[in-house]
Protein backbone atom coordinates (compact mmCIF):
# COMPACT_ATOMS: atom_id res chain seq x y z
CA UNK A 1 0.00 0.00 0.00
CA UNK A 2 1.36 3.42 -0.85
CA UNK A 3 1.59 5.97 1.88
CA UNK A 4 -1.06 8.24 0.39
CA UNK A 5 -3.48 5.32 0.36
CA UNK A 6 -2.67 4.63 3.97
CA UNK A 7 -3.38 8.23 4.94
CA UNK A 8 -6.66 8.22 3.06
CA UNK A 9 -7.92 5.12 4.77
CA UNK A 10 -6.79 6.41 8.14
CA UNK A 11 -8.63 9.70 7.78
CA UNK A 12 -11.80 7.98 6.65
CA UNK A 13 -12.01 5.92 9.83
CA UNK A 14 -14.07 7.19 12.72
CA UNK A 15 -11.76 7.06 15.72
CA UNK A 16 -8.09 7.87 15.77
CA UNK A 17 -5.78 5.07 14.72
CA UNK A 18 -4.13 4.94 18.09
CA UNK A 19 -7.34 4.55 20.05
CA UNK A 20 -8.55 1.92 17.55
CA UNK A 21 -5.33 0.02 17.98
CA UNK A 22 -5.63 0.21 21.75
CA UNK A 23 -9.25 -0.96 21.65
CA UNK A 24 -8.61 -3.98 19.46
CA UNK A 25 -5.39 -4.98 21.27
CA UNK A 26 -7.08 -4.77 24.66
CA UNK A 27 -10.04 -6.79 23.44
CA UNK A 28 -7.78 -9.53 22.06
CA UNK A 29 -5.69 -9.55 25.22
CA UNK A 30 -8.82 -9.73 27.33
CA UNK A 31 -9.93 -12.81 25.42
CA UNK A 32 -6.65 -14.58 26.21
CA UNK A 33 -6.97 -13.76 29.90
CA UNK A 34 -10.59 -14.95 30.03
CA UNK A 35 -9.38 -18.23 28.56
CA UNK A 36 -6.63 -18.39 31.15
CA UNK A 37 -8.96 -17.77 34.08
CA UNK A 38 -11.43 -20.40 32.88
CA UNK A 39 -8.74 -22.92 31.99
CA UNK A 40 -5.98 -22.21 34.49
CA UNK A 41 -4.32 -25.62 34.31
CA UNK A 42 -1.44 -24.49 32.09
CA UNK A 43 -0.70 -21.55 34.36
CA UNK A 44 -0.77 -23.76 37.43
CA UNK A 45 1.37 -26.45 35.80
CA UNK A 46 3.74 -23.70 34.70
CA UNK A 47 4.28 -22.70 38.34
CA UNK A 48 4.19 -26.12 39.95
CA UNK A 49 6.68 -27.78 37.64
CA UNK A 50 9.53 -25.33 38.28
CA UNK A 51 8.73 -25.38 41.99
CA UNK A 52 9.25 -29.11 42.01
CA UNK A 53 12.55 -28.63 40.20
CA UNK A 54 13.59 -26.07 42.73
CA UNK A 55 12.67 -28.15 45.76
CA UNK A 56 13.90 -31.53 44.50
CA UNK A 57 17.09 -30.38 42.83
CA UNK A 58 17.85 -28.03 45.69
CA UNK A 59 17.50 -30.96 48.10
CA UNK A 60 19.51 -33.29 45.90
CA UNK A 61 22.63 -31.17 46.20
CA UNK A 62 22.06 -29.74 49.67
CA UNK A 63 24.96 -31.73 51.15
CA UNK A 64 27.38 -30.97 48.34
CA UNK A 65 30.82 -29.98 49.64
CA UNK A 66 31.05 -26.31 50.48
CA UNK A 67 32.91 -24.15 47.98
CA UNK A 68 31.97 -26.53 45.18
CA UNK A 69 30.34 -23.76 43.21
CA UNK A 70 32.16 -20.63 42.11
CA UNK A 71 31.80 -17.85 44.68
CA UNK A 72 30.79 -20.34 47.38
CA UNK A 73 27.09 -20.12 46.49
CA UNK A 74 24.70 -22.73 47.89
CA UNK A 75 23.27 -24.98 45.21
CA UNK A 76 19.70 -23.88 45.92
CA UNK A 77 20.61 -20.28 45.34
CA UNK A 78 22.62 -21.23 42.25
CA UNK A 79 19.69 -23.19 40.89
CA UNK A 80 17.10 -20.46 41.59
CA UNK A 81 18.28 -18.31 38.69
CA UNK A 82 18.17 -21.28 36.33
CA UNK A 83 14.66 -22.24 37.32
CA UNK A 84 13.35 -18.68 37.04
CA UNK A 85 14.76 -18.34 33.53
CA UNK A 86 13.57 -21.77 32.51
CA UNK A 87 10.03 -20.96 33.68
CA UNK A 88 9.87 -17.76 31.69
CA UNK A 89 11.45 -19.52 28.72
CA UNK A 90 9.00 -22.42 28.55
CA UNK A 91 6.06 -20.08 29.08
CA UNK A 92 7.16 -17.92 26.17
CA UNK A 93 7.89 -20.94 24.02
CA UNK A 94 4.20 -21.82 24.31
CA UNK A 95 3.11 -18.37 23.11
CA UNK A 96 2.47 -19.66 19.62
CA UNK A 97 0.00 -22.34 20.69
CA UNK A 98 -3.14 -20.20 21.06
CA UNK A 99 -2.32 -18.55 17.73
CA UNK A 100 -1.86 -21.92 16.10
CA UNK A 101 -5.23 -23.09 17.40
CA UNK A 102 -6.83 -19.92 16.07
CA UNK A 103 -5.32 -20.63 12.67
CA UNK A 104 -6.47 -24.23 12.71
CA UNK A 105 -10.00 -23.62 13.94
CA UNK A 106 -10.48 -20.61 11.70
CA UNK A 107 -10.92 -18.09 14.49
CA UNK A 108 -8.12 -16.13 12.89
CA UNK A 109 -10.33 -15.59 9.86
CA UNK A 110 -12.82 -13.83 12.09
CA UNK A 111 -10.06 -11.42 13.04
CA UNK A 112 -8.87 -11.04 9.47
CA UNK A 113 -12.26 -9.97 8.07
CA UNK A 114 -12.52 -7.29 10.77
CA UNK A 115 -11.19 -3.82 9.91
CA UNK A 116 -8.31 -3.98 12.39
CA UNK A 117 -6.30 -0.80 12.26
CA UNK A 118 -3.21 -2.98 12.34
CA UNK A 119 -2.89 -6.73 12.31
CA UNK A 120 0.02 -6.31 14.67
CA UNK A 121 -2.61 -6.06 17.39
CA UNK A 122 -2.94 -9.85 17.15
CA UNK A 123 0.79 -10.10 17.87
CA UNK A 124 0.75 -7.40 20.56
CA UNK A 125 -2.02 -9.22 22.41
CA UNK A 126 0.03 -12.43 22.51
CA UNK A 127 3.12 -10.61 23.68
CA UNK A 128 1.28 -8.77 26.47
CA UNK A 129 -0.40 -11.98 27.57
CA UNK A 130 2.70 -14.14 27.60
CA UNK A 131 4.84 -11.49 29.22
CA UNK A 132 2.36 -11.05 32.05
CA UNK A 133 2.02 -14.73 32.80
CA UNK A 134 5.74 -15.30 32.54
CA UNK A 135 6.32 -12.51 35.04
CA UNK A 136 3.62 -13.81 37.38
CA UNK A 137 5.14 -17.30 37.25
CA UNK A 138 8.66 -16.01 37.76
CA UNK A 139 7.62 -13.91 40.73
CA UNK A 140 5.94 -16.95 42.26
CA UNK A 141 9.18 -18.91 41.86
CA UNK A 142 11.21 -16.05 43.30
CA UNK A 143 8.86 -15.86 46.28
CA UNK A 144 9.21 -19.58 46.95
CA UNK A 145 12.96 -19.47 46.51
CA UNK A 146 13.02 -16.73 49.12
CA UNK A 147 10.96 -18.84 51.52
CA UNK A 148 13.30 -21.78 50.94
CA UNK A 149 16.14 -19.53 52.09
CA UNK A 150 17.69 -19.08 48.66
CA UNK A 151 17.72 -15.29 48.97
CA UNK A 152 16.15 -12.34 47.22
CA UNK A 153 17.78 -9.90 44.82
CA UNK A 154 17.86 -6.31 46.09
CA UNK A 155 15.87 -3.54 44.42
CA UNK A 156 18.37 -2.96 41.64
CA UNK A 157 18.74 -6.70 41.41
CA UNK A 158 15.00 -7.14 40.99
CA UNK A 159 15.02 -4.55 38.24
CA UNK A 160 17.78 -6.42 36.44
CA UNK A 161 15.94 -9.72 36.89
CA UNK A 162 12.76 -8.32 35.36
CA UNK A 163 14.60 -6.60 32.52
CA UNK A 164 16.46 -9.80 31.68
CA UNK A 165 13.27 -11.85 31.73
CA UNK A 166 11.49 -9.32 29.53
CA UNK A 167 14.22 -9.50 26.92
CA UNK A 168 14.24 -13.28 26.94
CA UNK A 169 10.45 -13.55 26.85
CA UNK A 170 10.24 -11.10 24.00
CA UNK A 171 12.78 -13.00 21.90
CA UNK A 172 11.30 -16.41 22.59
CA UNK A 173 7.73 -15.20 22.02
CA UNK A 174 8.79 -13.87 18.64
CA UNK A 175 10.33 -17.23 17.84
CA UNK A 176 7.26 -19.13 18.93
CA UNK A 177 4.85 -16.90 17.01
CA UNK A 178 7.04 -17.31 13.97
CA UNK A 179 6.86 -21.08 14.37
CA UNK A 180 3.10 -20.88 14.86
CA UNK A 181 2.77 -19.35 11.41
CA UNK A 182 5.50 -21.36 9.71
CA UNK A 183 4.49 -24.84 10.83
CA UNK A 184 1.50 -26.70 9.38
CA UNK A 185 -0.31 -27.59 12.62
CA UNK A 186 -0.30 -27.75 16.40
CA UNK A 187 1.10 -31.28 16.45
CA UNK A 188 4.25 -30.09 14.71
CA UNK A 189 4.43 -27.03 16.95
CA UNK A 190 4.14 -29.08 20.11
CA UNK A 191 6.80 -31.46 18.77
CA UNK A 192 9.21 -28.60 18.14
CA UNK A 193 8.52 -27.10 21.57
CA UNK A 194 9.08 -30.49 23.15
CA UNK A 195 12.33 -31.00 21.29
CA UNK A 196 13.85 -27.60 22.11
CA UNK A 197 12.66 -27.27 25.67
CA UNK A 198 14.68 -29.66 27.81
CA UNK A 199 17.88 -29.82 25.73
CA UNK A 200 18.16 -26.05 25.95
CA UNK A 201 17.79 -26.34 29.71
CA UNK A 202 20.49 -28.98 30.07
CA UNK A 203 22.82 -27.30 27.62
CA UNK A 204 22.80 -24.10 29.65
CA UNK A 205 24.27 -22.99 32.95
CA UNK A 206 20.91 -23.49 34.69
CA UNK A 207 21.94 -26.68 36.53
CA UNK A 208 25.72 -26.48 36.57
CA UNK A 209 28.44 -23.95 35.74
CA UNK A 210 30.45 -24.26 32.54
CA UNK A 211 33.51 -25.34 34.51
CA UNK A 212 31.72 -28.61 35.38
CA UNK A 213 31.05 -29.46 31.74
CA UNK A 214 33.01 -31.28 29.07
CA UNK A 215 34.35 -28.92 26.42
CA UNK A 216 31.69 -29.57 23.80
CA UNK A 217 28.85 -29.01 26.25
CA UNK A 218 30.58 -25.93 27.61
CA UNK A 219 30.60 -24.50 24.12
CA UNK A 220 26.90 -25.24 23.68
CA UNK A 221 26.09 -23.66 27.03
CA UNK A 222 28.19 -20.64 26.17
CA UNK A 223 26.17 -19.88 23.03
CA UNK A 224 22.80 -20.82 24.52
CA UNK A 225 20.54 -17.77 24.97
CA UNK A 226 19.29 -19.17 28.28
CA UNK A 227 22.80 -18.80 29.67
CA UNK A 228 22.87 -15.09 28.85
CA UNK A 229 19.68 -14.67 30.83
CA UNK A 230 20.67 -16.95 33.70
CA UNK A 231 24.01 -15.37 34.50
CA UNK A 232 22.85 -11.76 35.10
CA UNK A 233 20.01 -13.06 37.29
CA UNK A 234 22.40 -15.30 39.18
CA UNK A 235 24.66 -12.32 39.66
CA UNK A 236 21.69 -10.34 40.98
CA UNK A 237 21.15 -13.11 43.54
CA UNK A 238 24.81 -13.29 44.41
CA UNK A 239 25.16 -10.09 46.37
CA UNK A 240 25.98 -6.49 45.43
CA UNK A 241 25.31 -6.23 41.74
CA UNK A 242 27.81 -4.81 39.29
CA UNK A 243 26.92 -5.52 35.68
CA UNK A 244 30.37 -4.33 34.65
CA UNK A 245 31.99 -7.40 36.25
CA UNK A 246 32.76 -10.56 34.35
CA UNK A 247 29.99 -13.07 35.10
CA UNK A 248 30.52 -15.72 32.46
CA UNK A 249 33.76 -17.52 31.67
CA UNK A 250 32.99 -18.83 28.21
CA UNK A 251 35.45 -20.86 26.11
CA UNK A 252 35.63 -17.93 23.67
CA UNK A 253 36.31 -15.35 26.36
CA UNK A 254 34.88 -13.60 29.39
CA UNK A 255 31.53 -11.80 29.35
CA UNK A 256 30.34 -9.04 31.67
CA UNK A 257 26.74 -8.53 32.81
CA UNK A 258 26.38 -5.80 30.21
CA UNK A 259 27.74 -8.18 27.61
CA UNK A 260 25.08 -10.77 28.43
CA UNK A 261 22.26 -8.24 28.35
CA UNK A 262 23.62 -6.81 25.10
CA UNK A 263 23.51 -10.23 23.50
CA UNK A 264 19.90 -10.70 24.66
CA UNK A 265 18.96 -7.31 23.22
CA UNK A 266 20.62 -8.17 19.92
CA UNK A 267 18.84 -11.52 19.91
CA UNK A 268 15.42 -9.93 20.49
CA UNK A 269 15.94 -7.37 17.77
CA UNK A 270 17.37 -9.96 15.39
CA UNK A 271 14.49 -12.39 15.87
CA UNK A 272 11.99 -9.58 15.53
CA UNK A 273 13.38 -8.59 12.15
CA UNK A 274 13.69 -12.19 11.07
CA UNK A 275 10.12 -13.05 11.91
CA UNK A 276 8.09 -9.93 11.21
CA UNK A 277 8.24 -10.39 7.40
CA UNK A 278 6.77 -13.87 7.86
CA UNK A 279 4.00 -12.55 10.10
CA UNK A 280 3.29 -9.68 7.74
CA UNK A 281 2.98 -12.07 4.85
CA UNK A 282 0.67 -14.43 6.72
CA UNK A 283 -1.46 -11.63 8.11
CA UNK A 284 -1.42 -9.44 5.00
Amino acid sequence: MTSTKAIESISSSKGSVRSDLRQETLALTRRLFIQLVRRPSTLIAGVVQPLIWLILFGALFSNAPEGLLPGGMSYGRFLGAGVIVFTAFSGALNAGLPVMFDREFGFLNRLLVAPLSSRNSIIFASVIYITSISLIQSLAIMGTAFLLGYGWPGTTGLFVVLLTLLLLVFAVTALSLGLAFALPGHIELIAVIFVINLPLLFASTALAPISFMPVWLGWLAAVNPLTFAIEPIRAAYGGPLDLGLVILHAPYGDLTGYGCLGILIALSIGLFFLISPLLNRKLA
Binding site: K14, A27, R30, R31, I34, A114
Partner: peptide
Protein backbone atom coordinates in the same frame (compact mmCIF):
# COMPACT_ATOMS: atom_id res chain seq x y z
CA UNK B 1 -17.86 -20.15 11.68
CA UNK B 2 -15.22 -20.56 14.30
CA UNK B 3 -16.26 -19.57 17.75
CA UNK B 4 -14.24 -19.52 20.92
CA UNK B 5 -15.78 -22.25 23.05
CA UNK B 6 -14.45 -20.79 26.28
CA UNK B 7 -16.02 -17.35 25.84
CA UNK B 8 -19.69 -16.69 26.41
CA UNK B 9 -21.75 -15.46 23.49
CA UNK B 10 -21.89 -12.06 25.15
CA UNK B 11 -18.11 -11.84 25.47
CA UNK B 12 -17.72 -12.86 21.86
CA UNK B 13 -20.04 -10.06 20.77
CA UNK B 14 -18.08 -7.58 22.89
CA UNK B 15 -14.86 -8.72 21.26
CA UNK B 16 -16.46 -8.38 17.85
CA UNK B 17 -17.66 -4.87 18.68
CA UNK B 18 -14.15 -3.87 19.72
CA UNK B 19 -12.62 -5.30 16.57
CA UNK B 20 -14.99 -3.06 14.60
CA UNK B 21 -14.15 -0.12 16.86
Amino acid sequence: VAIDKILTGFELLQLQGDLYH
